[in-house]
Design a protein around this nucleic acid. Sequence first.
DNA 1: ATGAAAGCGCTAACAT
DNA 2: ATGTTAGCGCTTTCAT
Lengths: 350, 350
Amino acid sequence: MPSHPTLADVAEKAGVSASTASIAFSGSGPVSDATKERVLAAAAALGYAGPDPRARSLRRGRSGIVGVVLEERVRAAFLDPVKIRTLDGIAEGIAPLGAGLLLLTDTGDVDGDAPVSIESAPVDAVVLIGCSPRLADSVATFRRRGIPAVAIEGAADEDILEIAIDNRAATRRGAEYLQKLGHSRVAIVALPIDPVRTRGPITPEVESRATNVTTRDRLLGAREIFPDAPAVATAASSVEEGRAAAAGLLADPTGRPTAIIAQSDLLAAGVIRAAEELGLRVPDDVSVLGFDGIRVDGLQHDLTTLDQPSAAKGRAAGEAIVRLLAGEEPEPAAFTCTLHIGDTTAPPRG
Amino acid sequence: MPSHPTLADVAEKAGVSASTASIAFSGSGPVSDATKERVLAAAAALGYAGPDPRARSLRRGRSGIVGVVLEERVRAAFLDPVKIRTLDGIAEGIAPLGAGLLLLTDTGDVDGDAPVSIESAPVDAVVLIGCSPRLADSVATFRRRGIPAVAIEGAADEDILEIAIDNRAATRRGAEYLQKLGHSRVAIVALPIDPVRTRGPITPEVESRATNVTTRDRLLGAREIFPDAPAVATAASSVEEGRAAAAGLLADPTGRPTAIIAQSDLLAAGVIRAAEELGLRVPDDVSVLGFDGIRVDGLQHDLTTLDQPSAAKGRAAGEAIVRLLAGEEPEPAAFTCTLHIGDTTAPPRG
DNA sequence: ATGAAAGCGCTAACAT
DNA sequence: ATGTTAGCGCTTTCAT
């Protein structure tokens, strides 16, 4: 009795052929009840735990695993409520597949050692979340490997099925709202804009090199209303990054913006904190607009924000995967964000 | 040129043997630079995206994937901040492996169709999170398959490496604190206690059938100080469940508890909400003790709670996996929770 | 209903 | 440094 019995061992013990034993386990063929029982008994006796998934997936050409490619480290994704809700939606969308979700990261590290990189993961299909600057590479890789892929945002120029939200139009609507309130001196606290997450003012030159499509689209939407609004890039969507960026924007009383458009709710929470630290009141002295529609932990305000249907987005991506795997051709989809008016926006003073 | 070229195709095109081509890709052997280049060129020409991970893992006997078994649906786990932080810690702990994280669920559904169930996932090792009533089965399955496993809580009686926290002792410390404040009429809002998540009073009979080790241990800890405290089981760790359970406990002014021990912070938040809905003030009319040390979204109070090191717990589990895979024998570990005294506990009135 | 044979695509011994 | 050989464990025609 080998330490880890194979199907062949079980078959031999049961006195049947390997193919019959296989059928007894998978149920994909006719077996007499007696034979089946004999096989199962032999398996139990040998401590056989069922067919080896590795061999099975080689033979069948399918692994039963759907990959989720995150642009950042897993831990970072878990800190982002939007990502979590999206992931949740994906899980729901692929539920009919009964497939496992494999979390992958596309950090750009050339991790040749990593047994499971984006280049070599045993997945039947993938969902790319976020706007990796290396998206084009990833897409090409999966295409070469014949792995169906769906992108959630950030696929603007790539030849891949995309599930999007109206980043640009939504931001525009938010900006219009600020304009209607009477704001004209507006500044933007932006998400990371390039692969290396450079902090600082977004000059036209920086903007031309932007690789993050979400950042760029939300920027364009804001610029439709406030063409000259200064923008600052952050290194991450976090309260701390928002605080640091806004501290700079609000420090000088001369020409201080009366409203700040933050490209995420976490950044917006940071903006509010920065304002409070400078003795400014929100929304009396500064209005703040967010994006996402998450509830920010510890934030006392009811943030005015663009509420995005992140779970629906994920579900749509999951459903698209199911259809792709079934040989169908799902359509790209675009979801619409809703302007939620909270208590962080008001007409400018004076 | 086949639609999906194999290593053999590449080797042929490059005019080398398959084994040489294999080495050119994996780097696990000597190849001349010239040959390597020729192989890579041939691969590029054919659009070969690298060795098939399924074949590779069959041959090597390793998939480069670590499974995470959740007791509930993925979406439910994502709603639980403790689980997320634990997952985060696991990702950090197994980072040296460069392995992917495969999310698996052990719902008890006999999902024979699921390509990737707990019985048949191509994983090199697994972490079991939470306290599945079916833990014993899972453990046996993984053992038969020769897959190293680590459990985070809930493995009390199983023969498996466990990373634990001091659920019982910590709860006892919290209960002692309430006692010192002067409380004696205390009630408990408990986590789910059995596989079917039955709601309602925890009678001795129910308690004897408890399968959820965390629930049971926290219950025992509370009972060390308040032996006769009535307890109510909920169906999930959520604000809504906590609210519903507490609504029942607080409804009748006669013999109303002066303090409630909730087995999670989400439940505690629900308890507070129920109290407020009844016009009771926290902590003046009712003291509330939580467990977890998460920040509950939207909760205005600074919850008195037992702060558990969930990320550290996950990291320890990840590190244990790394060591198991290296053939070492890591020790079980137990982490200690800290009593955080917030503003939801005070001496009882009058 | 069962068995024999042929690989899935790759890598690891072992030769040369 | 390169080639030859032999499977990893399973599933699937195709016979019988």
